[in-house]
Design a protein around this nucleic acid. Structure first.
Lengths: 70, 70
DNA sequence: TTAAAAATCACATTATACTGTGATTTTAAC
DNA sequence: GTTAAAATCACAGTATAATGTGATTTTTAA
């Protein structure tokens, strides 16, 4: 999952919940600046930042086997 | 998903594939040092590092709705 | 329209992820 | 029990994620 697609998914979820960047950033304990960049795929966020965000947004990151096995 | 559990899953996958930290790190283009820390949950990896690793290991990061909806 | 809220953007600073190196410890094979 | 490979660890240096600030643009609601 790319930075771009992660950002888009986070933004879609935030839009669905109808909350602002400010609120999400505040609840997650990260800066609006950082959230803004992550949503636009202009950041290379740390796992910690992503987890703070997914936690606030009711999402979760998971690690799965790719469809085509090795 | 916590740093710890991600690290464990990455290591389990590497063990399953029977390849060394050196090989994975090399293929992923990150340092062994970094991989070592990520596997032990002692790092706060960036999305880029995680994606390089999942790519090499045949895994993928996904973002999902948590079971209990908001 | 216009006023307010929200989002976008630039930029300097701070915090920290990542690297490189070398040493030590653990594991595996003989 | 020796050797070699793999993993663990400390630590200094470099690159960059995250912050804080203020300004500008866009969106929304009246």
């Amino acid at each position: 999952m790319s930075k771009k697609s992660i950002g888009i998914q986070l933004k879609e979820r935030r839009d669905h919940l109808k909350i602002t960047q400010y609120e999400v950033a505040d609840l997650a304990g990260i800066s609006v600046n950082t959230l803004y960049k992550i949503e636009r795929g202009q950041a290379n966020p740390t796992l910690e930042s992503l987890e703070k965000l997914t936690s606030v947004l009711g999402l979760e990151l998971t690690l799965q086997l790719k469809s085509i096995e090795v």
